[in-house]
Amino acid sequence: NSLAEAKVLANRELDKYGVSDYYKNLINNAKTVEGVKALIDEILA
């Protein structure tokens, strides 16, 4: 998966839960796919 794909999928996942734009910005600023995954795990914990 590319970083861009990971960000799109992460933001879709956040949308399902009604997560605020603050967290979407964190996702969009992530530098690695692993970073995106770690943020998602933390946000949805």
Score class of each variant (00 low, 15 high):
N25A: 13
S2H: 10
I27D: 00
A45W: 10
K31P: 07
A10D: 02
K31L: 13
A45V: 08
I40T: 08
D21A: 09
L3W: 00
Y22T: 05
G35S: 12
K24V: 06
G18K: 08
L14Q: 01
D21M: 06
G35A: 15
A30L: 05
I27Y: 00
K37N: 10
V33D: 02
A6I: 11
L9Q: 15
E42V: 13
S20A: 11
A45M: 12
L39V: 08
K16C: 05
D21L: 05
V8G: 11
I43R: 01
I40F: 14
L26D: 03
Y23Q: 04
E5S: 09
D41N: 13
N1A: 14
D41F: 10
S20F: 05
N11Q: 15
G35Q: 15
N29D: 12
Y23D: 03
V33G: 02
K7S: 01
L26P: 01
N1M: 13
A10C: 04
G18Q: 06
N25S: 10
K37M: 13
R12E: 15
K16V: 05
R12Y: 13
T32H: 03
N11P: 02
D21S: 07
N25W: 08
N1R: 14
N29Q: 13
S20E: 09
Y23G: 03
Y17S: 05
K16W: 04
V33Q: 03
L39S: 01
A6D: 03
G35H: 14
L39R: 02
K7D: 02
V8S: 14
K31R: 11
Y17N: 07
N28G: 04
A38D: 08
Y23H: 07
K16I: 06
R12I: 15
D15C: 04
V8Y: 11
S2M: 11
S2G: 12
L9T: 15
L26I: 07
D21E: 12
S2N: 12
S20W: 06
N1D: 13
N11C: 09
K16G: 07
L26T: 03
G18W: 05
L26A: 07
Y23N: 03
L3T: 02
V33W: 04
E13P: 00
V19Q: 08
K31F: 10
Y17Q: 06
G18L: 07
A6P: 00
L9A: 15
A30Q: 09
I27A: 01
Y22N: 05
V36C: 02
A4K: 10
D41G: 10
G18Y: 06
D21K: 06
A6E: 10
K16Y: 07
K16D: 05
Y22Q: 09
N25Q: 11
A38G: 06
S2L: 13
I43W: 09
G35D: 15
N11A: 08
I43L: 06
N28C: 06
A6M: 11
V33I: 15
N25P: 03
A45H: 10
L44G: 03
Y17H: 13
V19C: 13
E34N: 06
D15Y: 04
V19M: 14
Y17I: 11
G35V: 14
K24F: 06
N1G: 12
K37D: 03
K24S: 06
R12H: 12
T32D: 06
I40V: 13
D21N: 08
L3C: 02
T32Y: 02
L44Q: 05
L44H: 07
V19I: 14
A4I: 10
T32W: 01
N28R: 06
S20M: 09
G35I: 14
A10N: 02
K7N: 01
L14N: 02
L14C: 07
K7L: 06
E42M: 14
E34M: 07
S2Y: 08
L9P: 01
A30C: 06
A30P: 01
L14G: 03
Y22I: 09
V36N: 00
N28K: 09
V19H: 05
Y17W: 14
A4F: 08
A6S: 09
E42C: 15
R12S: 14
V33H: 05
Y23W: 13
V36I: 13
A38N: 06
S2I: 09
T32P: 00
E5L: 12
A6Y: 09
Y22L: 08
A10W: 02
N11W: 13
E13H: 08
N28T: 08
R12W: 13
L14S: 05
S20C: 12
G18V: 06
I27T: 01
G35C: 10
N29L: 11
A6Q: 05
A30S: 08
K31W: 06
K24D: 02
K37C: 06
A10E: 01
G18E: 08
E5H: 11
V19E: 05
E34F: 04
N25M: 12
G18C: 09
L44C: 03
N11T: 13
R12A: 15
D21Q: 08
N1F: 10
Y22W: 11
